[in-house]
């Protein structure tokens, strides 16, 4: 039984590994992509291609300029850099991944990893402490019959034990 299950999983995995996947779409030279990297300068604080103010003149002029530069064959990086030189770093829709800005990009992950380390050591400590199996412990190799009993126990115990 286990052999056939392993075979089934292996076949499905093989099919997927052979499949030619592609990276996330990112046509760096499209006007839309570059607009998505910039903030509209009409004061709306929206990303350029999201600004919907009818009176916004920034969106049209900025988008036309991007289109013109794309047509002239300028690279996306050069076009974005042009706008940074014009309006400053705040024209970018996200802080560039360098220098002090890296704190914004990396700190959440660093904090999660640090928290993960704390949890890991706490778990080790608690597991070391938990040498005995208290009443109601779930069996290690739970069978369907045991599962049925556990579900029934937990459900009937719910009324007396409050929420879980």
């Amino acid at each position: 039984m286990i052999k056939s299950k392993v075979c089934l999983l292996a076949v499905l995995l093989l099919v997927l590994f052979l499949a030619p996947v592609v990276p996330v779409k990112a046509d760096a030279m499209t006007v839309d992509y570059i607009s998505g990297q910039l903030i509209c300068q009409c004061g709306c604080t929206s990303v350029l291609n999201n600004c919907t103010h009818a009176e916004c003149h920034s969106r049209e002029s900025m988008t036309n300029l991007i289109r013109q530069k794309v047509d002239q064959g300028e690279s996306a990086a050069a076009i974005i850099q042009y706008f940074v030189a014009q309006y400053g770093e705040q024209v970018l829709s996200s802080p560039p991944k360098k220098g002090f800005n890296l704190t914004a990009w990396l700190l959440p992950f660093a904090a999660i990893m640090a928290g993960g380390a704390v949890i890991y050591f706490a778990l080790k400590k608690w597991v070391k402490r938990g040498t005995h199996q208290p009443e109601g412990v779930v069996p290690v190799n739970e069978t369907d019959k045991e599962y049925e009993r556990r579900v029934e126990n937990e459900l009937s115990g719910f009324t007396h034990g409050g929420f879980r």
Binding site: G36, Q37, I39, T45, V47, G88, E89, Q90, V91, L92, S93, S94, P95, F100, N101, A104, W105, L107, P108, F109
Partner: peptide, 27 residues
């Protein structure tokens, strides 16, 4: 952090930055 980063950046570097959807989506 992303919400307050414009203020933090201005306080630390004196440079205004914008933190928009690309940042939040990626992080």
């Amino acid at each position: 952090l992303g919400t307050f980063f414009p203020i933090i950046s201005e306080a630390v570097r004196g440079v205004k930055v914008s933190v928009g959807p690309p940042f939040f989506n990626q992080v």
